[in-house]
Structure formats: structure tokens, C-alpha cells
Simulated assay, not measured.
Amino acid sequence: MESFDEDRMIHLYLPDDYLTSNKRYPVLYMFDGQNLFSDEDATFHSSWHLAQAIEERQFELIVVGQECSHTGNDRLDEYGPYPFADFEAKEAFNGYGDLTMDFFIHELKPYIDEHYPTMPQRETTWIGGSSCGGLMALYAHIVYSDIYSKSLVLSPFVSPVEDYLYLEAFYSELMQDNQMYISWGALEEGKHEFVKETKIISNIVSILSQKGMKFHLNVKENGRHCEQDWAQECNEFLEFLFE
């Protein structure tokens, strides 16, 4: 990652026959790639088992997961598109999300398109993530709709940057044909936070709907803020990508 002057692990899913099939595949770029495929790699030892879900449904795609920083709270800088303060932790974060997206767009995507049989056009280039990664997927689709046509926004970390998001959505100039999957759960951070999160997401949906964005909303009555619950959504968001 030139913007951060460091190396980073990329977790990659490829169809078994990608070398011999003569097919090209859509590509889903994901944040927190260490949590996608293997419990052994996952931060909290529980992954999404995404490869298994893809194979069970016989979908054909490439998944590219960028592993987050594991140094202190650097993940919140890297996956924060705007600066914000955490008053409980008494810590401020710089919001280096633009630098992260510079890596995704100008380094990672060109490398993947050069070395693997991708469908590189925006119609088959998608992005997704959860929590801070969900915030980044939301931001990326709003700002870079010329690159991404679909996004997966799971339990996005929106509360600290509410006003920034409203302004970003209001002034955005979206390409045509955009679709966004958003999910959030009632048991993530308590009732008060769920009500606030629902308000913020509803306002963003309202703004972007007027610009032509289409939405698949999934409010989870018993949804928690954890990998186990996001794993349970794999079938639903994969259906969304391929519908």
C-alpha cells in the first residue's frame, strides 16, 4: 500500500477452474479480508465461511479481501473516510479512508485485472464490508460510483460521521444503475443506538434514492455486531449481487 508505505495481506477467492474455464468473472472487493474465509485467519476466530457459501450456491465470482491493519487502532484511521472522535476512549481518528481507496482503485484493482480473468467494467465490480468496513463500502459507492455498481454495507459504523455522510450523499453525482445492500441489527449496540442508526440509514437512503440508487434493506430483529451474524447473511447478499 504505497499511500501507507506498508505491505498488506490480500485474501483471494478464485473459482477452482479459473485457469482452464476461459471464463471471466465479476469481482467483489471486501474490507477486513482476514474475516471472510477461514476461522484460523479471522480476528476473533470466527469467519464468514464465504467460500463455502459461494460454492454451495454455485455462483461464479472472484473475491478480493484486503486485510486491515492490526496495529493499535490504526484500522479506525484506515477505514474511516472522515475524521471523528471517540469520546469514551478519549481518542481522535484522522480519517485516512481516501488513502485506503486510493490503494483499492489505483493499486489493487489494476493488479487483479492484470493477473486474473476478471470482468473489469463497473457493472461487474462490487465492494463490501462490515462495521467500519461497511462504512467504507458505503462511502466508496457514493464517491466512486464510476468504479463500483453494487455495494454490500453490513452494520455500517455511521453514527460518529453522520453529518459528513449526509453532505457526501447530498452532493454526490452518481453514475446510472447503482444498487446497495444495507443491513443492520437491533441487538448491535443497544436500543438507543439501533434507533439512531436506523434514522441515519433511512436519511441516507432517502437522499440517494432521489439520485437513482436502488436499495435492498435488511433489518435484523436479532442481529448482533459480530462475524457470526454477518456470516448468516452470505446467501442473501450473494443473491442480491447476482439477481
Results as ranks from 00 to 15, higher is better:
L187P: 00
L241S: 07
E123C: 07
L108A: 11
I62V: 07
E221H: 13
H45C: 08
E88V: 13
W230K: 04
T43F: 04
Y181W: 07
P120S: 09
G80R: 08
D86T: 09
G97S: 04
Y144P: 00
S21L: 05
E40T: 12
S149I: 09
E189W: 15
E56D: 13
M136Y: 01
R8M: 02
D113V: 00
Q228S: 11
E239S: 04
E243Y: 12
Q34S: 08
Y139M: 03
S155M: 13
N73K: 13
G129C: 09
S209A: 04
V143S: 10
E107I: 05
P120R: 03
S155W: 04
Y25I: 03
W126T: 00
D77Q: 04
F215Q: 05
T198A: 12
Y164L: 08
P120K: 01
K196N: 12
S46K: 05
R75M: 02
E162S: 09
R75K: 03
E60C: 02
P110D: 14
L154R: 04
S159C: 12
N94S: 10
L36I: 06
F44K: 06
L154Q: 15
F37Q: 11
F237R: 10
A231E: 14
L19W: 03
L108I: 12
S47L: 12
W184L: 15
F44E: 13
G65V: 09
S155G: 13
T124A: 11
L217D: 08
E55P: 02
W48F: 12
A231D: 13
I62W: 07
H115D: 14
M180D: 11
D74M: 02
F104G: 02
C68A: 14
L208T: 11
I147Q: 00
I127P: 03
S69I: 01
Q58W: 11
Q58D: 15
S130D: 14
Q34M: 01
F194S: 07
Q34E: 15
E6C: 05
L76V: 11
E173R: 06
E188M: 04
G80L: 03
M101L: 15
K23G: 04
E2A: 07
N35C: 03
L36H: 04
E239D: 14
Q176D: 11
Q176E: 15
A89Y: 02
R224P: 05
S3V: 10
E233M: 10
Y148L: 06
G185M: 11
K211R: 03
E91Y: 04
M213D: 08
M1H: 01
K214I: 10
Y144C: 07
A92W: 01
G128P: 14
S202I: 06
V153Y: 06
T71Q: 14
S183H: 00
C234Q: 12
I201E: 06
P117H: 09
G212E: 12
A89E: 13
T198K: 06
H106W: 08
M101Y: 03
A186Y: 12
S209W: 02
F87R: 01
L208G: 07
L241V: 10
M175K: 02
G33I: 03
L241D: 09
T20F: 14
M180G: 09
I105G: 02
L108H: 06
A169P: 07
I201H: 01
L76W: 06
K211N: 03
